[in-house]
């Protein structure tokens, strides 16, 4: 009987005292990521609705500099790889590696933000506004500024959290799990960009 109970709780669907086999703080981070993901899902579903109901939509290749956006994507993906390296370093107790890769991740985030600011400035100078633009479909820039703006604010928040984590790690106040939670948030920001890049800039 005891063995049977043990087998059930150890199986993929077993409950037990820790049904997801992670600590409470990591579970809370995952639940936060799900809810935050639904925020962007709402934006993108609404954007899909706008695309379906519009008889015309600006050609993104004429509006955006695609290779510039691809470079932004490359930088965010690279910062995710440096973050993953920092998380692994924390698990292994490689203190200097963690700090070095956290700083590289921060630099990646800052470069991404700088490039986004440049992209926004260029478009605004070309006449793009929240409710109007020179490309004939007013809601195009509405969705653009709303979606990329929310994502940008997430990147900015991520850079702040990364900076706090780096300082705490240097002082010996942050645990390996603390670095891992910061990493989960940062990867989520990268994950959201994968969807925005494809659905907004390419399709």
């Amino acid at each position: 009987m005891l063995k049977a109970t043990h087998d059930v709780t150890q199986s993929s669907w077993g409950g037990g005292i820790s049904p997801f086999a992670v600590g409470w703080n990591k579970l809370m981070m995952w639940l936060f990521i799900i809810t935050d993901g639904l925020l962007f899902a709402g934006f993108l579903a609404s954007y899909g609705f706008a695309r379906l109901s519009s008889s015309q939509w600006p050609d993104q290749l004429e509006v955006f500099h695609l290779w510039f956006i691809a470079l932004m994507t490359f930088i965010l993906i690279s910062s995710s790889a440096t973050m993953a390296t920092a998380v692994r370093g924390a698990e292994r107790g490689h203190r200097a590696t963690v700090l070095r890769f956290l700083l590289l991740t921060i630099v990646g985030g800052l470069v991404f933000l700088g490039m986004q600011a440049y992209e926004w400035t260029t478009l605004i100078r070309e006449g793009a506004r929240l409710y109007s633009n020179p490309w004939g479909v007013p809601q195009f820039t509405g969705y653009f500024f709303l979606t990329t703006g929310f994502h940008g604010s997430h990147v900015f928040t991520g850079v702040l959290i990364l900076s706090i984590t780096a300082v705490r790690w240097k002082k010996g106040l942050s645990s390996a799990e603390g670095v891992e939670l910061t990493g989960l948030y940062w990867h989520f920001v990268d994950l959201v960009w994968v969807f925005i890049f494809t659905l907004f800039y390419l399709i």
Binding site: F20, A21, W30, M83, A84, G183, H187, L191, V194
Partner: peptide
């Protein structure tokens, strides 16, 4: 998205229940 969630976020190595709720 699967590569990022699975490997960078370690979802592939977590318990299946967590991957399913996400």
């Amino acid at each position: 998205a699967s590569l990022i969630a699975g490997y960078f976020m370690h979802l592939r190595f977590e318990k299946l229940t967590l991957a399913v709720i996400v």
